[in-house]
Design a protein around this nucleic acid. Structure first.
Length: 838
DNA sequence: GCAAGGTC
């Protein structure tokens, strides 16, 4: 038996560091091995993996999609190989002479599998050392020491359950993805993917779109009256209602004639009599602690996409400000002391008052959600506070959300008073009922510290039964029933969670993948024609791949494996047989499936008939990666139209009346815009004469080049040289708005000042050269400054206002001067930035 | 060039 050090293996570096601290009493030293942190104390070493450090895949001879029939993948061998070479190498070095190895990966199924991967890597180089497994629910002194005092064995059945999932996902995903891509002739970047999780997610979106398409709006009418309390003059709105066939209260009137009759009666009424008044207090309980899904939802409500919210949370976690952001847990662990954590915020600018008000309460008893898991706590602040200069504006906003959510979970319930008033009007012996619902927040409770929920009150005055009210106004509103709403990103993630597909760590990535695969576009996401075709085809030939059934089945199989009731081989074999059957169906269908997919792919790219030859005009990609419009009749027809250079084109439903071509929208994140009909844009440019505004600074003197305002066929505008392409001097102009050339002249460049008229306020663009210089200074300076950690968009802007436009400028600046002129920035912070800039 | 799951 080797006498070497004992080795502890965790799932990630962060956990390794904290466990080393706990076990060593903070005496552990960190050293680097192959670029990986190794924590060292006494006779111990601790290393963190990076999740899975080995991956499963088919051997290289299966790599060529054309050479290998997709169906062959079903029974192809599967290899395991290191994916994180340096970590694996470091682990091997450490394991070789270890006298004992302890696996301390996360306490969940995937953690058990990661542990088994480590186990095998260790056994490769060390046959004798005992290998233990420790399990703890949170990385705290008590739990960790307790776990290390009572080591257990690795649960190979549980790990095998995870391995079965890996294999089944790979085989189904790869075989079907290749089959669909090959039959649609989509190889290369735009292959057609399917999988156990993306399939059902996409089907959710497509199904909702189908409902929207099939929706047939119905007309209905609603009637309102404004009522006024006689003595006080207080006014409120009441709505007409009636008992429907089932005796339920109904507000919508479904036929116009009845609506008109009721309205006629209502109009003649001058007063209403209060029939009933009902008061009710409702307790509004504070929300549960944040799990990943609820965090994403809350961040979504303040404008962050799921992807962005998670990326910011990841940064805040790495910097030590919040706990691990990927968690299903909604119950704080016992060792979290709410008073202590709240106290950390006392005395701070942003949170001090709220923290004190919470500490004034009798006790802080945190709310609990339904889910209690063992791997990570709900997301909460760690108590280590960033200053607003440490992190960007966006990060601070998200951090504040996490802090306030924690505050809310220990705050008191709010109380609402609901007031419901029913009053009748009876101008002609047939009474009509009107109702009004008011609500008032009588106790602010957690809303005081968590302002993210809507808590608008609606006013209805105190009235008494029998009281007479004036009818001051009546309204008749024609409405239509609305189709169901599309899923937003956070609704989608919540629904996935309810359906049990994906995990806390992957759901937002799955949505991103659907965007990347051209299955969805816009936000809230809408399915492309390709997505509809893939879902329809899957429904027809391989229903399992778009149904949550597959995950449910897998979950129950995994449970059975973990419980020792089934084994890995049985489950994977059964799954392979099922996939064989699916493939038989696919083969029988012949080429039909491929044709369907190709048709949809083409429809997603088709604008309409070519004005030259009548074939379809399609969005195409040039050799250089830019998009343009080309004719399907090429090479017989060479008609082309340019598209803007920014963004990815999306074909809209709207059509150009003149050319019968669909409008094009350019998707480019925040810079997304509608380009319109590319033929119209090109025609406009052809008709527009260049307007000369001065001499070209580049070639004017030598060759007589002049600067002119030009409209390009791609829709963009610029100030460019008339000798183009011999001289390519150019300055950008905005895409929209009328450009006015004024009499005012720039002293430095001799060019006229320009004004852009677009909507409300005219924009004084000024001299185009000066304007472009300013723009460049801002762009470069801004981006550059933001490359320094701690400087966000807003801070960069403040610095620019203070005359610091770039990193060299920042380094030369006097910290005290900046501290004096930039609000919220201290001299030490500036010195800190200057140090980082070196 | 495939999936889904860890983590960065």
């Amino acid at each position: 038996m080797s006498k070497g050090p004992e080795l502890i293996i965790t799932e990630k570096d962060n956990a390794a560091r904290r466990i080393a601290d706990i076990l060593s009493g903070e005496s552990a030293d960190a050293e680097r091995m192959n670029g990986v942190n190794v924590y060292k104390w006494g006779g111990k070493r601790c290393i963190g993996l990076s999740g899975h450090v080995v991956g499963v895949d088919f051997p290289p001879e299966y790599n060529d999609w054309r050479d290998v029939e997709p169906v062959e993948l079903i029974d192809a061998p599967i290899d395991k190989h290191p994916t994180q070479e340096n970590i694996v190498a470091a682990l091997r070095r450490l394991a070789r002479h270890a006298s004992r190895v302890t696996i301390a990966t996360d306490y969940d199924r995937e953690g058990e599998l990661i542990g088994k991967e480590a186990y095998e890597l260790v056994r490769d180089v060390n046959e004798d050392a005992p290998i233990d497994r420790v399990r703890f629910s949170s990385i705290t002194q008590n739990e960790v020491t307790e776990a290390f005092d009572n080591p257990e064995d690795l649960d190979f059945d549980l790990a095998a359950a995870g391995e079965a999932r890996q294999i089944i996902d790979l085989v189904w995903g790869a075989a079907l993805t290749r089959f669909l891509s090959l039959s649609a002739r989509q190889l290369g970047n735009d292959f057609i993917s399917v999988g156990r999780v993306q399939g059902p997610t996409l089907k959710l979106i497509v199904d909702r779109e189908r409902e929207i398409d099939a929706f047939d709006p119905e007309d209905y009418w609603e009637l309102f009256a404004d009522l006024e309390k006689d003595d006080s003059g207080e006014n409120f709105e009441a709505q007409y209602f009636y008992p429907d066939e089932d005796g339920n209260e109904a507000e919508r009137v479904w036929d116009e004639e009845t609506a008109n009759e009721v309205y006629d009666t209502l109009q003649t009424a001058s007063s209403a009599t209060v029939q009933s008044v009902r008061r009710r207090t409702r307790t509004d309980k504070p929300p549960a602690p944040f799990n990943t899904t609820q965090f994403i939802r809350a961040a979504g409500s303040i404008g962050y996409s799921a992807q962005r919210a998670m990326s910011i949370a990841e940064d805040l976690y790495t910097a030590g400000y919040i706990t691990y952001p990927r968690t299903d847990n909604t119950v704080y662990p016992d060792d979290l002391d709410p008073e202590e954590l709240v106290s950390e915020f006392v005395g701070t600018n942003r949170f001090g008052d709220d923290a004190e008000s919470l500490l004034d309460l009798d006790e802080l008893d945190p709310t609990e959600g339904d889910e209690e898991t063992t791997d990570h706590p709900p997301i909460h602040p760690t108590g280590e506070l960033p200053s607003s200069a440490d992190i960007s504006e966006d990060e601070y906003e998200v951090y504040e959300l996490v802090v306030r959510r924690f505050f809310a979970t220990v705050a008191e319930a709010a109380k609402w008073e609901h007031l419901r008033v029913v009053a009748d009007v009876d101008p002609d012996g047939e009474p009509l009922s009107l109702k009004a619902n008011g609500k008032r927040l009588v106790k602010e409770g957690y809303h005081a510290v968590y302002p993210y929920f809507n808590n608008t009150e609606s006013f209805v005055p105190d009235v008494e039964e029998g009281e007479a009210l004036d009818v001051t106004e009546t309204r008749f509103e024609a409405k239509q029933t609305q189709p169901p709403r599309r899923y937003g990103q956070s609704r989608l993630i919540e629904t996935m969670e309810q359906m049990g597909i994906g995990t806390k760590a992957t759901r937002h990535d799955v949505i991103q993948k659907l965007y990347d695969r051209n299955y969805i576009e816009s936000d809230p996401p809408r399915p492309t024609r390709l997505a509809r075709a893939v879902v329809s085809a899957s429904e027809e030939f391989a229903d399992r791949i778009v149904s949550e059934e597959m995950t449910a089945q897998l979950e129950s199989d995994m449970l059975a494996i973990a419980d020792g009731e089934k084994n890995f081989e049985d489950v994977t074999e059964e799954s392979r047989e099922m996939l064989e059957t699916v493939f038989e169906g696919l083969m029988e269908s012949g080429d039909e499936l491929g044709k369907q997919l190709q048709k949809s792919l083409k429809a997603d790219k088709t604008l309409g008939p070519c004005p030259e030859c009548g074939e379809d005009l399609l969005v195409r990609k040039s050799r250089y990666g830019s998009y343009f419009v080309g004719c399907d009749g090429y090479p017989d027809c060479e008609h082309t139209l340019p598209l803007p250079s920014t963004g990815k084109p999306l074909i809209l439903e709207d059509e150009c009346e003149e050319h019968g071509l669909h409008h094009v929208k350019m998707l480019a994140g925040r810079k997304t815009f509608v380009h319109g009909c590319p033929q119209c844009k090109a025609d406009e440019a052809d008709e527009q004469d260049d307007e000369v505004i001065g001499e070209c600074p580049e070639c004017g003197e030598e060759h007589g080049g002049e600067l002119a305002i030009k409209q390009l066929r791609s829709g963009s505008r610029l100030v460019g040289c008339t000798r183009y392409p011999e001289c390519d001097y150019s300055l950008p102009l905005p895409r929209r708005g009328e450009i006015e050339v004024t009499d005012e002249e720039c002293e430095e460049h001799g060019l006229p000042h320009l004004v852009v008229h677009n909507g409300d306020e005219p924009w004084e663009l000024g001299c185009p050269i000066c304007n472009y210089r300013e723009y460049q200074a801002q762009q470069v300076g801004g981006d550059e400054l933001q490359s320094i950690s701690g400087i966000g968009e807003k801070t960069a802007e403040k610095l620019k206002d203070a005359g610091i436009a770039d990193v060299p400028g920042l380094k030369d600046a006097d910290p005290d001067d900046i501290a004096a002129s930039v609000e919220g920035v201290g001299a030490d912070t500036v010195r800190d930035w200057q140090a980082k800039a070196d």
